[in-house]
């Protein structure tokens, strides 16, 4: 047995300079990069409401949250870079469409209540997905996720609180909250990926200790957690087939229409072109700034050498 296999079998962490199978490295790069890209692209739908937040307190909360997402993207790029890829390569791959980000961010934020729904549902789903990653077999990824999860718990709570305020506010605010939940519920369920029998990468990732639970297991965990919260919010989930299974003590949700998810993944979501275009534009507009910083650093280094 190789050292790598021994480490995985013993549930020990793999660290950057250890030998690892190429496929393990490639899977991690793909997953961590996609995760990092999701944080960075994920700044846009919420950033869309930063200048319009309806109170200064909400503005500060949202700004801190969007800023955290940039931070989380950076923690994750840093973890990916320990695998021998540069952030430059990863960003190039994102910009060229060779690497993906979570499809959830290809939906638009149409009202202020969407900020609440994203916090409550999207971050709620993300946390369910991410908590097991804190025990992922790759050390730098697991450590980055510990940091991310610690910070994310405020994200979900602020979303819940925001929606609770709207739901118990004026009639118009309540309607705004319900409309947002109607639009974000199904896409949130799809964040856990295709059903287990259709998931291509799952088995190998489970064996390697990158993934700890199957898509459907995590999705069910999220549903069971969320249904009582919806009740507490005074909002309905848009699923007529949602029912409590007495025997299994679990919530059964209606069938998920994955055709939409696949369309969005293929690039046909409402905001795919907008999100990527925005990101590429920001990167290109900033090129002269990054070049200036590099040129300044070179000049300073030369001055340093001249003095020495």
């Amino acid at each position: 047995m190789s050292t790598f296999e021994e480490l995985i079998a013993a549930n020990e962490r793999v660290e950057p300079r250890d030998d690892m199978p190429d496929a393990y490295r490639a899977t991690l790069v793909r997953q961590i990069a996609q995760h990092a890209h999701s944080e960075i692209i994920g700044m846009q739908p919420e950033g869309n409401w930063l200048t319009r937040a309806p109170s200064l307190r909400r503005k500060a909360i949202l700004l801190a949250k969007v800023q955290d997402e940039a931070g989380h993207g950076l923690y994750l790029y840093a973890a990916a870079e320990t695998l021998g890829v540069s952030r430059e390569e990863l960003l190039d791959a994102l910009h060229a469409g060779r690497q993906k980000y979570s499809s959830i961010f290809n939906y638009p934020t149409l009202s202020w209540a969407d900020i609440g729904a994203i916090g409550w549902l999207v971050d709620g789903a993300a946390i369910v997905n991410q908590v097991p990653l804190c025990r992922c077999s790759y050390g730098p990824y697991a450590r980055a996720m510990v940091r991310v999860c610690k910070e994310e718990s405020f994200h979900q709570r602020q979303g819940f609180e925001l929606l609770h305020t709207l739901s118990h506010g004026t009639e118009a605010q309540h309607a705004m909250a319900q409309d947002a939940v109607d639009r974000w519920w199904w896409p949130s369920l799809m964040m856990f990926g295709p059903p287990d029998d259709a998931s291509t990468h799952s088995a190998q990732s489970m064996e390697w200790g990158i993934k700890r639970f199957s898509n459907d297991t995590l999705r069910q965990r999220f549903v069971d957690m969320t249904v009582p919260q919806a009740e507490a919010l005074g909002l309905t989930l848009p699923d007529p087939d949602l029912r409590w299974d007495e025997e299994a003590e679990t919530w059964r949700h209606g069938e998920i229409d994955f055709t939409e998810l696949f369309e969005v993944v293929k690039g046909n979501g409402p905001c795919n072109a907008q999100r990527l275009g925005h990101r590429v534009q920001a990167h290109e507009d900033g090129a002269w700034v990054r070049e200036a910083a590099a040129a300044y650093a070179r000049k300073q280094a030369e001055k340093g050498r001249a003095v020495a």
Partner: peptide, 13 residues
């Protein structure tokens, strides 16, 4: 000439 690192904002620290 622009170094490769400047396209993402510098060296790794």
């Amino acid at each position: 000439m622009v170094s490769a690192s400047s396209t993402t904002g510098g060296e790794l620290w």
